Amino acid sequence: TETYKYDDKREAEKAAEEFRRRGITVTVEERNGTWVLESK
């Protein structure tokens, strides 16, 4: 599991889209005002 942090929800979702395009499952969730993207 890799974790990436973003200040902006849009950025996180854009990154998530890129991962999914490569066939990687990711989750995006907000933690304490930071958007956390996790690849499984």
Score class of each variant (00 low, 15 high):
1 T>Q: 11
1 T>V: 13
1 T>I: 13
1 T>K: 11
2 E>A: 13
2 E>H: 15
2 E>V: 15
2 E>L: 14
3 T>P: 08
3 T>V: 13
3 T>F: 12
3 T>G: 09
3 T>E: 09
4 Y>A: 07
4 Y>T: 08
4 Y>N: 06
4 Y>H: 10
4 Y>K: 09
4 Y>V: 09
4 Y>S: 05
4 Y>W: 14
5 K>W: 15
5 K>H: 14
5 K>Q: 13
5 K>D: 05
6 Y>W: 05
6 Y>P: 01
6 Y>F: 14
6 Y>R: 01
7 D>W: 12
7 D>R: 13
7 D>G: 11
8 D>E: 06
8 D>A: 04
9 K>Y: 11
9 K>Q: 10
9 K>N: 03
9 K>P: 10
9 K>E: 08
10 R>M: 12
10 R>E: 15
10 R>I: 12
10 R>S: 11
10 R>G: 11
10 R>Y: 12
10 R>W: 12
11 E>L: 10
11 E>S: 11
11 E>H: 07
11 E>D: 11
12 A>K: 00
13 E>Q: 08
13 E>I: 09
13 E>K: 04
13 E>V: 07
14 K>V: 09
14 K>G: 04
15 A>K: 09
15 A>E: 03
15 A>S: 04
15 A>G: 02
15 A>T: 04
15 A>N: 03
16 A>Q: 06
16 A>N: 01
16 A>H: 02
16 A>R: 04
16 A>E: 03
17 E>M: 07
17 E>Q: 08
17 E>S: 05
18 E>F: 07
18 E>M: 08
18 E>K: 06
19 F>G: 01
19 F>N: 02
20 R>M: 08
20 R>C: 08
20 R>I: 07
20 R>G: 06
20 R>H: 07
20 R>N: 08
20 R>V: 06
20 R>L: 10
20 R>A: 11
20 R>Q: 07
21 R>E: 07
21 R>V: 07
22 R>W: 08
22 R>Y: 07
22 R>Q: 12
22 R>L: 12
22 R>T: 05
22 R>F: 07
23 G>F: 02
23 G>E: 02
23 G>I: 00
24 I>E: 06
24 I>C: 13
24 I>Q: 09
24 I>K: 07
24 I>L: 12
24 I>Y: 15
24 I>A: 09
25 T>L: 14
25 T>H: 13
25 T>A: 13
25 T>F: 14
26 V>K: 02
26 V>T: 03
26 V>Y: 07
26 V>A: 04
27 T>W: 11
27 T>V: 12
28 V>S: 01
28 V>M: 10
28 V>F: 04
28 V>C: 06
28 V>A: 02
28 V>L: 13
29 E>T: 15
29 E>M: 11
29 E>R: 11
29 E>Q: 11
29 E>Y: 15
30 E>V: 06
30 E>Y: 15
30 E>T: 04
30 E>D: 07
30 E>Q: 10
31 R>C: 08
31 R>E: 06
31 R>Y: 10
32 N>K: 04
32 N>T: 03
32 N>F: 05
32 N>A: 06
32 N>R: 03
32 N>H: 07
32 N>M: 05
33 G>Y: 02
33 G>W: 01
33 G>M: 03
33 G>L: 02
33 G>K: 03
33 G>S: 03
33 G>C: 03
33 G>N: 04
34 T>F: 15
34 T>S: 12
34 T>M: 15
34 T>G: 12
35 W>V: 01
35 W>K: 00
35 W>T: 01
35 W>F: 07
35 W>R: 00
35 W>N: 01
35 W>M: 01
35 W>I: 02
35 W>E: 01
36 V>K: 02
37 L>Y: 01
37 L>P: 00
37 L>R: 00
37 L>D: 00
37 L>S: 01
38 E>M: 14
38 E>H: 12
38 E>L: 15
38 E>P: 01
38 E>W: 10
39 S>A: 15
39 S>Y: 15
39 S>H: 14
39 S>C: 14
39 S>D: 07
39 S>Q: 13
39 S>R: 13
40 K>D: 10
40 K>V: 13
40 K>T: 13
40 K>N: 11
40 K>H: 14
40 K>R: 10
40 K>C: 07
